[in-house]
Structures are given as structure tokens and as C-alpha cells.
Design a protein around this nucleic acid. Structure first.
Length: 860
RNA sequence: GGGGGCGUGGCGGAAUUGGCAUACGCAGCAGACUUAAAAUCUGCCGAGCUUUGCUCUUGUGGGUUCGAGUCCCACCGCCCCUACCA
């Protein structure tokens, strides 16, 4: 038989068309079958797809195709996160509309996706900039407003001077804008917030239910939410003369057990109260300068250069628990937006307070000390301050025993200790303070002063205030003819903002801020369940059927941003009775980055970008997909190695040759072989197979199918390695002379067919072509996508003899072959004979037999 | 400072979860085919040695075990995240 050449360009195009014509990937066709929702994070269409997308999608596609072959009804959609700043910047540069630029890029990206052969249900495609989608984003905004989860308020916000917009806390890393890297400024502005902090506790608690998430992502979210348990304590402000006033200043602390050791009090320099205390004094200018210099430093700079600068205000407060009068300072190590923006200074128990006290010569009073400390015997009975200065090198901030702490002296101190609880009880009884929990998580600032986003559906009326846009007027559409190149914004576009009040009919002004694009990506995975619904964002029925997403694949850069917002959004929609789940993503996979051959991040500016097209043109999409999955485990970064890619292509050519040669060698008309009825290779009686056939079958045994071809656990690199071994075995078989029975001819065919089936999720084009051309299966199936995944049969007969390793005193000394039914005694006897040369002749202390594996002989 | 992870050939990486360390691939070496090259095929490919074989080898040192890359303790080194969070 003439073996045709492997021509990826031709067969890939052919199969992509056949799949599309047959609507092969439409979700919901297998009524009654268990569902599997496989999703890759959708792309921002800033140009054509790059290798990172190719990796992301190849992983998800292998998962989706495999699930379908295993019998699931698979939902595998795609779409675009189409609003955002790059479209505006490109529009300004090219003097076009962001819409044009975005749609052109999405069109190119879909073409590229199709050349890669992904099994997407394109009938569910979502483009977030389409009014059909953003209408429901507006609807959900209004829903949240009704639920009391939207707030419009003036407060200090992060402003990116380069992007000309505010940013959410999550979008500022180390003091710079996540998108453009510019240094972020603080400004006092009136903005819209989603009250995500109302869900802080639940967002934290439910992290424990996310068993399918990488531990580091869970930890990152846990740290971001940042729960601290402790107490609020009310200090009494003294007037300028030092006498107590009625005014109380509250601090938050996680260590109320150290409250007897407070020797000073500190405000953040930006705090309003701090400013008030020094107003009109000679300290005013210095405090302003301190606030200025503090705001200029990024977190990293502050941490690497932890100079604690302070100014004494000249004022005092009284510690409510011991009435001591303590000085009030202003220092740059206190953060305005955490806790109450003020700290009770306990230098003996907190390293930062300790450093500050050292620098400014403030007293250090030990109150919670270790029993090993030389001071302990002196102070263990002390109820009042006896020692008010220590020679410690650092603060004692771990656990210890309370001293110099009035009636609490002698109690065990520390976070959540008996002293902590006792002091909180006391504070609550005396109304001096209360138990309190603080979160690091801030409310989500969602308004943006940008054009290319979802307009906030609010109308401002002088008479009626903030008025919702009525449902029938949704969506508030973006104007088509804005001139961004001329610097025009929505706020300068009267055709957009001039309107009438829906309540009183008077003249009113439309809100000109748009929503953060992360609002668009916070629920797109829900809309995929029901993408064409024009009555609701989603129907509960559709969401209940498909959600949660079973496998979610994306980059680690979304560990906090998108993944936290989506979890919040799901809980909100649950509370709005739109769905019944609490967590949207069951298993999360964060794939590694694709770097260049030298391990450098690919970037346009470095000129080291390898485009998927550069691989597809010479080798085909199957080779690209295979290489992406083979070169490194999915979650690790990998360096693009052109030689390894060529090696993957070589493997596909070998599979192609092996299958055709095998069909030719089998000397049976494959048209007469019903592959559905052919016994599975591993059910077959091995006694009838030749040695080479055994080698092939051995790699398809129980372990092979359950462990080696472990698609469930995403071990694609090792699964592919086993497919390579199987191919090598087929070549070994082809070199031998085969038996001449019907079975002996058909077993290898079955093996080859299973090989091709297992290759199908990774390299679907070559698999379908071999199925059709070599196995002549065109009448049975359009595609192996609808075919069956090989199954292991429990009844598979093991080989009649078993190889075991013989160890003497823990060292390998030989191998034995024993009958599969051999008794313990027989095995021991055979092993002793085989190891005779290695035995010293001493008494044999014991013999350990591990069935199927080894015999260990231990001498006295 | 806090948290998470990792350390195996020249390289990417395997190791059935305590049982033959280095699978599979890349690179390299040798051979076959060829006028030649490419492609393809075959073989070799951790280190050392006194080479039918022996010894050593999973960052270092110890421990548990008949048996450790895997478990425990200490140390060394690297990567990622986060950061004056009271």
C-alpha cells in the first residue's frame, strides 16, 4: 500500500471545515449525560493571539475534547474581554474609533483560534463591548444598587496620571498602575464602589472549600482579604493644657493584652484628626511635608528603607485602662487607610513601635515577657510599672506572661490568648473598647473616567439626586462619533450626557463615568450558560445546569483581581436569587508562562516574540499543541525550544508512518474490521500474542490507562511520553514477524486505534485523518471527538510470569522470574537461589516479599 | 519581616506516592542509506574504576526503615507572591 505523505496544512484545514459544518462542538447535544464546563480565561483583543494564549487554550482544549470522549456533555465557550484602555489609546494613535480597532482584532483572533483547531462552541461567543452583553452589566449594577451594595462617596483614591483614571486597590501593585506602570497618586474624589467588604468574611471562609485551587492562589487571596482579630480601644484626648476632654480616639489592635505597655500614641500623617491637632501650630508645615513624602514612597521602598519619621504634636491622650497620660505623635509608619489610621505605641511588644521608641527616646515598658527573660523573676508579681526601660535588642512580640499589668499580671499573653480575652471582656464591661475584626480588603472602586467601557446607568438630577436609568431604557449606549483623537471624553460630549430626569422630567445630566472592565469579566462565565437571553442576565435554569465551571485555566496574574471579583459577583447574584451556587470555579489551573529559548519573557519591545503562526506554518497546529503540552508540565514556565518543537513534529510523522504500516502489515481489509466490536487490546488473551505484541499491550495495561494517560490530573507531558513509548513499541513490533491468526493481525490494529484515540484531544486533526484514511472509519463517525476513550477492563489477564527484584541487605543483587501464582515460599526459595552468590552465609534474619515487586533478604 | 514553592544528567523533565533513580524528548556521538547534504532508520549516551563486572550518584549533614529522590530534623541555595496591616 502506498502511504500518503503527512501534510498538516491540508488535513488541518479540511478537518476544521468538517467540524464546523457538522456543528460538532455545540454544547447541550447529549441530553442526560453528565456535564463538563471547561473554560479558559477570555482574551483581551489587543492584537493577534500570542503563544501565551495558545498555551492557555491548548490546555483547555485537550481537557474539553477528552471530557467529550469520556462521554460528558461539554460546554467549551470562548469570547473577548473587549472593553478597555488599549483600544482607546490605539484609537487616539490611529485616529479611529475604539470599536473598529477592537472588532478588527477580535476577527483576527477568531481566525487564528480556528487555525489552531480549538473545540469552541462559537454560537456562544461573547464580546463584552456588545450592547447585548453590557446591557446586563448595567442591569446588574442597578440590582446591586437596590441591594445596598453600591455606594457613591468621596474618599482618597488611587489616581493614575498616565491613564487619567482612578484605580481599584487591587489594580495598584507596589504603588504603580497595574496596566501602565506609572506611579499612582492619592486624590480625594467622589466615586462609585461595590461593597465587596460586606462579603469579606464569606470570601475568606469559602476559600477553604476550594479544594481544586492551587494553594498559593488561595493563600494570596487569604492575605489580600487580610483578616485581623483584635479589639478597638477608646483613648481619651487631652486638651492643649493636658486635661481630659470628652473626645475619644479609637485605635485598633490585634494585641489588646499589651495595652498596659502603651507609652506613646501615633497618627498617620494624612489623617484628618492629625491635621486638626496641629492646625495653627508650628508643627503644621512639618506634618504636611511628612504626609507628602510618605505618599511618594511605594510599599517596596518603604519596606526596604524602614525609616520611621515622627513629629511630636505637643498633645496627649489618656490610656483608658491605666489612666496614664501619653504623648501623641504623627509618624509615617502608620497607614491612614488601615484600622482607624492610628496606633497605640507598645514598643516592648511590637518591633515597629520599638524602632520608633528607640529613635525618639520614648520609654519601653515590658508587659508581656518570656519566662526565660532575666526580668521575669523581678517583674512576675508586679502590677504597676516598675521597670520603664529595657536593654533589649528587639521587641518581644511573641507569646509570654503578662507583667506590670494590674489585675491581669500573670496571665498568658499573645494573639488570641487568655489575657487577650480577659482584657477585651474588661474593656467591654467598662465600655472602654470592644472586640473587633479588621480586614485589609477595601471596597471595590468601579468607576473609571474613560470612554471605552460600560456606562454607569445613573442620571443626576438637581431635584431628585441620583436616579436609576429605567430598565426599558437600558442599555445606556456609548456614542459612536466621539473624537478621542481630539481629546474628547464622555464628560465633554453633551449629546451623551444631556438628558431628562426619569423621575421629574426636568433637565438632568447622565453619569459620564464607565465601569471598571473587571466588572465585565466578573460574570461572563455565567452568561456563557445562557448567552442569548434577552429577558434576564441569565436564566437560573441554565446556570444551575452548567455551573460551576469544572476546569478553569488561566494566568496567575489574575490570582487576586479577576478571581476575587468573580467570587464576589457570584455570591451577589446568589443573594439576588439568580443562581444557587456560592463559588464559580471548581478546579483552577494557573498555567506557566511561555518564555523564549533563553528564559526571557517574550515581549514586543525585546523582539523575542514567537508567534503561533511561525509554528503552524511549517509544522501545523497539531505540532504546536503537542509541543506546548509536552515540553513542560502545564503549571510551570517553559522556555520555547525550536528543537523540541521539531522533535514533536517528528513524533507525529512517526505515528503517521506506524499506523499506515501497521494497517498494511495486518493484511486484513480494515473496512471489514468493526472497531466498535473489536475486543479492547487489553482484554485480549496474551498467550496468543507474540513477544513484541506483549510489549505493546503492556503499555496499555491498567497502570497505563489510569496513571500514565492521566488527563484528569492534567499530566499531559507524561501522558504524551507514554504515547511516544507506545509508538516506539509499534516500531519494535513491525520489526518482528507477526503471528498469522486473525487475532494476531487485529490486536496491533486495535492498539494503534487506541493510540490514535488517545492522541485525539491533543492533536485532533491528525487523529481524525488517520481514523478516516488508515482505519477507513468515515462511515461511522465524523470525528473521534464523538468516539470513545479507551477503557481498561478489570478482567485483563496478567502475564503468566512476573519479574521481581532481589535485594540483599537493601542492595539490589539480581532479578528473578516467578510464575504469577507462585506462593510466598516458592518466591523466597527462588530468590535465595538467585542471590546465593551475594549471601555472606550469616543467618538470614528475615525475608520481605512485596508482591509483584521485590524480595528483600536481610542477614543477621 | 510574613507567606507559598523548589533543588534529580549537558538541557526540558520522569519515578506507579516508601520498592529496579534518570522514563519520554532535546542536544551530542557512532553507523546505515546517499556522489554529497537534508530527511529517515539503527545503536550509544549520569560519574568513576583495576570494565564478563564493581563502586558511587537525586543541594549538604544527620535520623527513621529490610529498603529513602520520596518521610523526620538541621543547614545551604534558588524562585514567586506580599509588604511599616498595628
Amino acid at each position: 500500500m502506498e502511504i500518503p505523505a503527512y501534510n498538516p496544512a491540508a488535513i488541518e484545514k479540511k478537518w476544521q471545515k468538517k467540524w464546523e459544518d457538522a456543528k460538532l462542538f455545540t454544547a447541550g447535544k447529549r441530553k442526560g449525560a453528565p456535564k463538563k464546563y471547561v473554560l479558559e480565561m477570555f482574551a483581551y483583543p489587543s492584537g493577534d493571539l500570542h503563544m501565551g494564549h495558545a498555551r492557555n487554550y491548548s490546555i483547555g482544549d485537550a481537557m474539553a475534547r477528552h471530557a467529550h470522549m469520556k462521554g460528558f456533555d461539554v460546554l467549551h465557550p470562548t469570547g473577548f474581554d473587549a472593553f478597555g484602555l488599549p483600544a482607546e489609546n490605539a484609537a487616539i494613535k490611529n485616529n479611529t474609533n475604539p470599536k473598529e480597532w477592537t472588532y478588527k482584532n477580535m476577527e483576527t483572533a477568531v481566525e487564528t483560534m480556528k487555525t489552531m483547531g480549538f473545540s469552541y462552541d462559537y454560537s456562544r461567543l461573547i464580546e463584552t463591548c456588545s450592547p447585548d452583553y453590557y446591557k446586563w452589566g448595567q442591569y446588574l449594577f442597578l440590582k446591586m444598587l437596590d441591594m445596598g451594595l453600591v455606594d457613591r462617596r468621596k474618599s482618597p483614591v488611587n489616581w493614575c496620571p498616565s491613564c487619567n483614571t482612578v484605580l481599584a486597590n487591587e489594580q495598584v501593585t507596589e504603588g504603580v498602575c497595574w496596566r501602565c506602570g506609572s506611579h499612582v497618586e492619592k486624590r480625594d474624589l467622589t466615586q462609585y464602589y461595590f461593597l465587596i467588604t460586606k462579603y469579606a468574611e464569606e470570601l475568606l471562609d469559602d476559600l477553604d472549600t476550594l479544594k481544586g485551587w492551587p494553594e498559593r492562589v488561595v493563600q494570596m487571596q487569604r492575605n489580600w482579604i487580610g483578616k485581623s482579630v483584635g479589639a478597638e480601644i477608646d483613648f481619651v484626648l487631652a486638651d492643649a493644657e493636658g486635661a481630659p476632654t470628652d473626645e475619644k480616639i479609637t485605635v485598633f489592635t490585634t494585641r489588646p493584652d499589651t495595652v498596659f505597655g502603651v507609652t506613646f500614641f501615633v497618627f498617620a500623617p494624612e489623617s484628618a484628626l492629625a491635621k486638626r491637632l496641629v492646625k495653627g501650630t508650628d508643627k503644621e508645615e512639618a506634618v504636611r511635608a511628612l504626609a507628602e513624602s510618605a505618599s511618594r514612597m511605594t510599599g517596596a521602598e518603604r519596606a526596604s528603607n524602614p525609616t520611621k519619621n515622627g513629629i511630636f504634636t505637643g498633645r496627649y491622650v489618656f490610656n483608658p485602662i491605666n489612666q496614664r497620660k501619653i504623648p501623641v505623635w504623627i509618624a509615617d509608619y502608620v497607614l491612614e487607610d488601615y484600622g482607624t489610621g492610628a496606633v497605640m505605641g507598645v514598643p516592648s511588644g511590637d518591633q515597629r513601635d520599638f524602632d520608633f521608641a528607640k529613635k525618639y527616646g520614648l520609654p519601653i515598658v515590658p508587659v508581656v515577657i518570656s519566662e526565660d527573660d532575666p526580668l521575669y523573676p523581678i517583674l512576675k508579681e508586679e502590677r504597676d510599672w516598675k521597670v520603664i526601660e529595657v536593654d533589649w535588642e528587639e521587641a518581644m512580640d511573641a507569646e509570654g506572661i503578662l507583667v506590670q499589668s494590674d489585675r491581669f499580671t500573670g496571665l498568658k499573653g499573645g494573639k488570641d490568648s487568655e489575657a487577650t480575652r480577659a482584657i477585651i471582656d474588661f474593656l467591654e464591661e467598662e465600655k472602654l473598647g470592644r472586640a473587633s475584626t479588621t480586614f485589609r480588603l477595601r471596597d471595590w472602586l468601579i468607576s473609571r473616567q474613560r470612554f471605552w467601557g460600560n456606562p454607569i446607568p445613573i442620571i443626576h438630577c438637581e431635584k431628585c439626586g441620583m436616579v436609576k436609568v429605567p430598565f426599558e431604557n437600558l442599555p445606556v449606549k456609548l456614542p459612536e462619533d466621539i473624537d478621542l483623537a481630539a481629546g474628547e471624553t464622555l464628560a465633554e460630549c453633551p449629546e451623551f450626557y444631556e438628558t431628562t430626569c426619569p423621575k421629574c422630567g426636568g433637565p438632568a445630566r447622565r453619569e459620564t463615568d464607565t465601569m471598571d472592565t473587571f466588572t465585565d469579566s466578573s460574570w461572563y462565565y455565567l452568561r456563557y450558560c445562557d448567552p442569548h437571553n434577552d429577558e434576564d442576565p441569565v436564566s437560573k435554569e441554565a446556570v444551575d445546569h452548567w455551573m460551576p465551571v469544572d476546569f478553569y485555566v488561566g494566568g496567575i496574574e489574575h490570582a487576586i483581581l479577576h478571581l476575587l471579583y468573580s467570587r464576589f459577583w457570584t455570591k451577589v447574584m446568589r443573594d439576588a436569587d439568580m443562581l444557587d451556587i456560592s463559588e464559580p470555579f471548581d478546579t483552577l489551573l494557573c498555567q506557566g508562562m511561555v518564555k523564549d529559548a533563553n528564559g526571557e519573557v517574550m515581549s514586543k519591545s525585546k523582539g523575542n516574540v514567537v508567534s503561533p503562526k511561525e509554528v503552524i506554518e511549517p509544522y501545523g497546529a497539531d505540532t504546536m499543541r503537542l509541543a506546548i503540552l509536552f515540553i513542560a508540565p502545564v503549571e510551570k514556565d517553559f522556555d520555547w525550544d525550536p528543537n523540541a518543537v521539531a522533535g514533536c513534529h517528528r513524533f507525529l510523522k512517526r505515528v503517521w508512518q506506524a499506523v499506515f504500516q501497521l494497517v498494511s502489515r495486518a493484511n486484513v481489509d480494515v473496512k471489514d474490521v468493526d472497531f466498535e466490536k473489536l475486543p479492547k487490546a487489553f482484554e485480549f488473551d496474551l498467550a496468543r500474542a507474540t513477544q513484541a505484541e506483549k510489549a505493546i499491550l503492556a503499555s496499555l495495561n491498567e497502570q497505563g490507562l489510569k496513571t500514565s494517560f492521566d488527563f484528569e490530573n492534567l499530566q499531559y507531558n507524561t501522558a504524551i511520553a507514554h504515547l511516544m513509548e507506545l509508538t516506539n513499541d509499534i516500531y519494535a513490533y513491525l520489526k518482528t514477524s507477526a503471528g498469522n491468526t486473525q487475532e494476531a493481525r487485529e490486536i496491533p490494529l486495535r492498539v494503534a486505534f487506541d493510540l490514535v484515540s488517545m492522541l485525539a484531544p491533543i492533536c485532533p486533526h491528525i487523529a481524525d485523518e488517520l481514523n478516516e484514511q488508515a482505519f477507513k472509519n468515515e462511515g461511522m463517525l465524523v470525528s473521534l471527538y464523538d468516539g470513545a476513550w479507551p477503557k481498561f477492563q478489570e478482567g485483563f489477564a496478567a502475564d503468566d510470569s512476573i519479574e521481581m527484584v532481589v535485594q540483599v541487605n537493601g542492595k539490589i543483587k539480581g532479578r528473578i522470574s516467578v510464575p504469577s501464582g507462585a506462593s510466598q515460599e516458592e518466591i523466597e526459595k527462588t530468590a535465595k537461589e538467585a542471590a546465593a552468590g551475594a549471601l555472606s552465609g550469616k543467618e538470614i534474619r528475615k525475608v520481605i516479599v512485596i508482591p509483584q515487586k521485590l524480595v528483600s533478604i536481610v542477614e543477621g
